[in-house]
């Protein structure tokens, strides 16, 4: 069953990702587009938070361990009201709280500094344990990149996750989601240092593992339901995703791991994300002033 509301928000956020990266002139589109459906499902269907009170102690936490895809997080946070969407174009600019990688001190709502890969799961374990010690009902969601699980610290944390807090305070308030888009900076993950068998590895470390299509809102929601209903252990979700999802020329291409689109490429990407044919594009923009403004802004960048 499709969730039209979440899918519309995800499309909106994809457009914002392309917009901010193009304004920044650098950043990581591929992994931002692969993780955005997961983040959308979390922020608009799952998490308990108050964007006006980002330090509310009982809020649910998201730790984006794959910090380089923070444009996706900024897009959902802006849409959720943590800061105005107009601020998205300050990404990576001097003085902006929208740092190239997450900075907790700079932007309320960011739970931990990440981007030095492999550290987010340990932080999430500590958060989940600390919330339990404080008798909070808040949940923790940790999003791992696939390439980053080549880091040794991830496996220290993998070993600890199902054991920590047992038996009185098992970390069943923690759900870890692997954004398995199969591509890392240098090349396909399988060509650099293959992770397979991924499911068996995490199972062997004691985690219940769910496998889903990370772009199917129904799949994502069901897995999140199941994780939330699980008692006595944290849950691990392997989300199969497509790097660059939604933009034909970015999909499954390692070149788009860490390269911002040029304005003309960005406009084409936005058209594809919105599912509009080339012939219908001008008419579409006449009927959609918001997208029109974004496209005009990008076209103006081209002229600079």
């Amino acid at each position: 069953m499709a969730d039209a509301r979440l899918e519309a928000i995800a499309r909106h956020c994809r457009v914002q990702i392309i917009r901010m990266l193009t304004h920044a002139g650098s950043g990581h589109p591929g992994g931002s587009l692969s993780v955005i459906d997961i983040l959308t499902a979390l922020y608009f269907g799952r998490l308990r938070y108050d964007a006006k009170r980002p330090d509310w102690p009982d809020r649910d936490r998201v730790v984006l361990s794959k910090g380089h895809t923070v444009p996706a997080l900024y897009a959902v946070m802006a849409r959720a009201g943590f800061f105005p969407e107009s601020q998205l174009v300050t990404l990576r600019k001097l003085g902006s709280p929208l740092q190239g990688h997450p900075d907790r001190s700079a932007l309320p709502g960011i739970e931990a500094a990440t981007g030095s890969l492999g550290q987010g799961l340990s932080i999430s374990l500590g958060l989940a344990l600390g919330l339990k010690l404080g008798a909070s009902r808040a949940r923790v969601y940790c999003i791992l990149g696939d390439g980053e699980t080549q880091e040794g610290q991830v496996w220290e944390a993998a070993m600890a996750g199902p054991k920590l807090g047992q038996p009185d305070r098992p970390l069943d308030n923690l759900c870890v989601i692997l954004d398995y888009n199969k591509i890392q900076l240098d090349n396909f993950v399988a060509k650099i240092m293959d992770l397979e068998p991924v499911v068996a590895k995490w199972q062997a470390f004691g985690w219940p593992v769910l496998e889903i299509d990370g772009h199917d809102m129904d799949h994502i929601n069901k897995a999140l339901d199941q994780a939330e209903a699980t008692r006595g252990t944290p849950t691990f979700i392997v989300a199969h995703t497509v790097k660059g999802k939604g933009v034909s020329f970015m999909e499954n291409d390692p070149e788009w791991h860490g390269k911002a689109p040029k304005p003309a490429e960005a406009i084409r990407a936005i058209r594809e994300i919105l599912g509009v044919g080339e012939a219908a594009w001008d008419d579409y923009l006449k009927a959609d002033p918001t997208t029109r403004a974004i496209v005009d802004e990008l076209a103006a960048l081209e002229k600079k």
Partner: peptide, 18 residues
């Protein structure tokens, strides 16, 4: 946490954030 200092430090960070 066993002989895993990086994880120890990271768990400490999470505990502090909670």
């Amino acid at each position: 946490v066993g002989i895993a200092e990086s994880n120890m430090i990271g768990i400490g960070a999470g505990l502090a954030l909670a």
